[in-house]
Write a protein that binds this DNA or RNA. Structure first.
Length: 310
DNA sequence: TTTAATGT
């Protein structure tokens, strides 16, 4: 049974990332992206989202007081930490900003029927893209960075998920919520279809929780070595991600939870490609992004992952 | 329908 599940996950991996290499070899180019188990004290543990194998609080967390060492920490860090995670809370979504790449690390949304219902008081065409003044000017992206770059200012928290108030949609137009996306064939089609799929989940689930962000995946080059290679645009060198991920949890009225995870390459994707072909095991995204998603979810509440009973 | 850029 376990063997069968591992095989299933391996197949999903091949399908999901195959999109990046359509018609090319499907050879693994970075083993850690595909691993679905970890070794702790010599024991192999199958990764499962929602199972914080290592605990959620790092031993290096600067705010944990142990044996009166707090004073030492404040001595060392007297003149400030170089960075924490730059979390920004807006009225209807939350994000963590990647100051190095001038795009989000992750964007979190809670979506219900109400949030996406038709609302004449809300008009997307009134919205304008604005630089986010809450980001330090060194790390802030500007409209000029995107202008004539060939890339769309692609929403991470989708405008269509925030139709409760005009103010909510407006806030999704901060450039801190954007990443450069291929326009035709991606943002305006395949990625848009994925966003619509997520909105449709509110027909099935009372509550939908959605985390979205960029990935910079390594690929094998002709010398046989793996490199992470991505374009940067504009005077502020805004990173063009190689891929984007979306991890969704649907919560039913009885409290049971279903999870779906997707990775799509930031490139023109044939229109007929079904959204489901971009499904990947959630832990694959976690390893690639360096993030843990929904790690407060208790295993007993998790019903399905990517449509498969767990 | 929703996703956007470009040129005037």
């Amino acid at each position: 049974m376990l063997r069968k599940r591992l095989l299933y996950l391996a197949q999903l991996s091949a399908v999901g990332f195959g999109g990046y290499y359509i018609g090319q070899n499907k050879e693994k180019y970075c083993d850690f992206l595909y691993g679905n188990s970890v070794t702790v004290d010599g024991k192999r543990i199958l990764n499962k989202p929602g199972l914080p194998v290592f605990g959620t609080v790092s031993a290096a967390t600067p705010f944990v007081e142990t044996n009166g060492s707090k004073d030492r920490i404040s001595q060392i860090m007297k003149y400030g930490f170089p960075g924490l995670d730059n979390v920004r809370s807006y009225d209807d979504f939350v994000l963590s900003y990647d100051r190095r790449n001038r795009v989000p690390h992750w964007v979190f949304e809670h979506i219900t029927k109400d949030h996406i219902a038709k609302n004449d008081a809300v008009d997307r065409s009134k919205c304008e893209f604005h630089p986010d003044e809450s980001i330090h000017p060194f790390f802030r992206s500007q409209n000029t960075d995107y202008k004539r770059s060939g890339f769309d200012r692609g929403h991470m928290a989708a405008a269509g998920n925030h139709r409760l108030h005009q103010k909510h949609v407006d806030q999704t137009f901060f450039l801190s919520n954007m990443a450069p996306q291929v326009g035709e064939g991606f943002n305006r089609s395949a990625w848009n279809r994925l966003e619509k799929h997520v909105r449709k989940l509110t027909k099935v689930y009372d509550n939908v929780y959605c985390c979205t962000g960029p990935l910079y995946l390594p690929r094998r080059e002709s010398d046989g070595k793996s490199y992470v290679r991505y374009q940067v645009i504009g005077a502020n060198c805004v990173a063009v991600p190689t891929h984007f991920y979306k991890i969704v949890v649907g919560e039913s009225s009885d409290g049971t939870l279903d999870m779906e995870a997707y990775v799509m390459p930031n490139q023109k994707i044939p229109d007929e490609t079904p959204v489901s072909s971009f499904m990947v095991p959630p832990e694959t995204v976690e390893k690639a992004a360096g993030l843990l998603f929904f790690d407060k979810i208790h295993r007993s509440k998790l019903n399905r992952i990517n449509g498969k009973k767990v």
